[in-house]
Design a protein around this nucleic acid. Structure first.
Length: 596
RNA sequence: GGGGUCGUAGUUCAGUAUUUGGUUAGAACGCCGGCCUGUCAAGCCGGAGGGCGCGAGUUCGAGUCUCGUCGGCCCCGCCA
């Protein structure tokens, strides 16, 4: 069948096109039969338009009445003005309709498992199983269109700044530092494996050594770790690397890129330069290395006020090198004892032993432990927090990390619960001066806080052996509304420094040579000073789309158990496939097919 | 690896808690049939459709109790 050429889409016709004969294609959205008149909303990715069938053309009318939801049809018709009483101001094409003169049913649809509508009632599970239908929903189409626009505006910005878009391998060498690798068996070299990149980190550094100076890539990355609302096993980064730069220059590119994207895709103006906050300060004031600055609450330190306090909990905490901090929750005094017990249970997740609270009600401070404090100490607390009527002060006394995590959680959790901020705003900031290393509390091992290629501050290099936890790194994170949306660093371009870092995290020279020999070699052949940044693209799209999960801006995402409900991946493979790869499963009884 | 929560018609949910387990499991939307010439979540009338994720167990009797298991979502760990 030869299809008549589509003259218009379903979203572009208006009263400027009255009288026009049009050829339309689309999906049957809603149907409203009236016995004499039949209305049909035709939908495509551009919009919806009302088609009218009149009973005079009996055959066409009968054909139209037989249509079902989501059938794909062709309509030939004339654009006509709607009667004044039948205008629909809620519809972009609501002033007109198309009077049908011909129709072809191109492909009927089975009754869909759920209705294609924005206010979707189907569960996410069902939506994922029927993703190709879910993606027909205007909301999902908008999200993917926005995603496209963000990609294009990023390319536009970076191209203009002289960056080259260069692809790097998807099949690469496994370097099991950091996240767990996805492995790909090699057929030609049985018993050996490629890995999918956790990020193109080493490749982009090598491109700098090759002299490409300014590189970017919209890069797919793979990490075999547990999933969350903002974490998928495969995700996309806008990956950037530059030569001959310091952190300031990379951050300038990063924030100008973000501002460009915001302006081009949402028409929003972000004020640059973004504020910079020290890692230590962010942890102290907001209890997080990715603070949500929409929330106007800050954590206060009580160490000074309580340094001589006789109250056992405080005294013990300080003598164990712990810290005491608190946060004021305006209006929080309405929380019941039970509510606060629940909060205490929640921060037990962070190993907090307890949660102390004071309520300011009827002009005075009430708390179970005030009797253990001196009048000066109580006055100190009042001066520090200046509580108003109905406010609540929450205090955690514990080891530093526990206090920060707990109060950071309470800050965001309660700000949301009490509606203490405008969630429509965007507050970007840089978190800088990260520590180079952190201690893994389980193994007691030192690991790179960012990654081992990050350059330590030159003045700290001498501490790499003696006191590595004091070493700061030339790393920076870009944080937006409590989400880490980009992170980067200046890299070690001198092989000696790089080797010292490997030593500090207990990768001996031989091991370093095995794993990263190619990079160490490259550093010795005229590697320019370089650094870069990578944006978590899915999170960025999520924020700009006003979504709360990256699954809603990824066309075919996995569930939190890393299953693809639509196609059932991962699945078992045949014995032949395994044999060809030289693989043998050792526990076949443990292998399950997903239930259908 | 751990914690929480959910799983009942095609879909979304009610029913599960000491009114302490009890005869044919309900509603709405969708679907099917009929009526209806201006609706746009069209309307009106009628109908079909599930045995309660799966598997054991307790009991005269289980959607309701117990154990296990699978799956969705949120969180901790993990994510250099």
């Amino acid at each position: 069948m030869k299809l008549p050429e589509r003259t218009h889409n379903c979203g572009e016709l208006s009263s400027n096109n009255l009288g026009l004969s049009v050829h339309l294609y689309g999906w049957v959205h809603h149907r409203r039969p009236h016995g004499g008149l039949f209305f049909l909303d035709l939908r495509d990715r551009y919009g919806t338009i009302q088609i009218v069938f009149r009973p005079e053309n009996k055959q066409l009318y009968k054909q139209a009445e037989a249509l079902g939801s989501e059938d794909v049809i062709y309509i030939k018709g004339t654009v006509v003005q709607r009667p004044p009483e039948a205008l629909n101001p809620n519809m972009a094409t609501g002033e007109i309709e198309v009077f049908a003169v011909d129709m072809i049913l191109l492909n009927p649809s089975k009754v869909p498992p759920f209705l294609i509508e924005d206010d979707v009632k189907a569960s996410e599970e069902l939506r994922l199983e029927w993703r190709f239908l879910d993606l027909r929903r205007p909301e999902m189409q908008k999200a993917l269109i926005l995603r496209h626009k963000i990609t294009q505006s990023a390319r536009e910005f970076l191209n203009k700044k002289g960056f080259l878009e260069i692809e790097t391998p998807i099949l690469m060498k496994s370097t099991p530092e950091g996240a767990r690798d996805y492995l790909v068996p090699s057929r030609k070299h049985k018993g050996r494996f490629y890995a999918l990149p956790q990020s193109p980190q080493t490749y982009k550094q090598l491109l700098m050594v090759s002299g490409f100076d300014r590189y970017y890539q919209i890069a797919r990355c793979f990490r075999d770790e547990d999933l969350r609302a903002d974490r998928q096993p495969e995700f996309t980064q806008i990956d950037i690397e530059m030569s001959f730069v310091d952190p300031e220059q990379v951050m300038a590119i990063g924030e100008n890129l973000l501002a460009h994207i915001f302006l081009k895709t949402r028409g929003l103006l972000l004020k640059t330069p973004f504020p910079k906050v020290d890692y230590t300060e962010a942890m102290a004031r907001y209890g997080s290395d990715r603070p949500d600055l929409r929330i106007p609450l800050e954590i206060q330190d009580l160490g000074d006020i309580l340094k001589n306090c006789e109250f056992r909990i405080f005294k013990q905490c300080l003598s164990d090198a712990g810290i005491i901090r608190g946060i004021k929750i305006p209006g929080g005094a309405s929380l019941s004892r039970g509510d606060i017990d629940k909060l205490t249970a929640e921060i037990a997740d962070f190993k907090a032993k307890g949660l102390l609270f004071l309520k300011f009600q009827e002009g005075e401070l009430n708390s179970s432990f005030l009797k253990f404090l001196t009048p000066q100490e109580i006055q100190g607390i009042i001066n520090l927090f200046t509580p108003g009527e109905g406010d609540l002060i929450l205090i955690v006394a514990d080891q530093s990390a526990i206090v920060s995590n707990s109060l950071g959680f309470l800050r965001t959790h309660l700000a949301e619960k009490f509606n203490l901020y405008n969630d429509q705003e965007f507050y970007p900031l840089w978190v800088v001066n990260f520590p180079m290393f952190e201690l893994d509390p389980e193994s007691g091992r030192l690991t790179a806080a960012h990654h081992p290629f990050t350059k330590p501050f030159e003045e700290d290099v001498h501490l790499l052996n003696s006191d590595p936890l004091k070493v700061k790194a030339e790393a920076y994170d870009l944080v937006l509304n409590g989400n880490e949306i980009a992170g980067g660093s200046i890299r070690s371009h001198q092989v000696e420094v790089q080797q010292k870092v490997f030593e500090a995290i207990k990768i001996n020279p031989e091991e370093a040579q095995n794993k990263f020999g190619f990079l160490l070699k490259a550093l010795q052949y005229g590697a320019p000073p370089h650094g870069g940044i990578a944006f978590g693209f899915d999170r960025l799209v999520m924020l700009l789309a006003g979504q709360n999960s990256i699954r809603n801006v990824i066309p075919f995402p996995k569930t939190t158990t890393a299953l693809s409900l639509m196609d059932g991946a991962p699945t078992a493979v045949s014995a032949e496939q395994l044999a060809e790869l030289g693989l043998k499963l050792c526990t076949p009884e443990d292998i399950h097919e997903p239930e259908k």
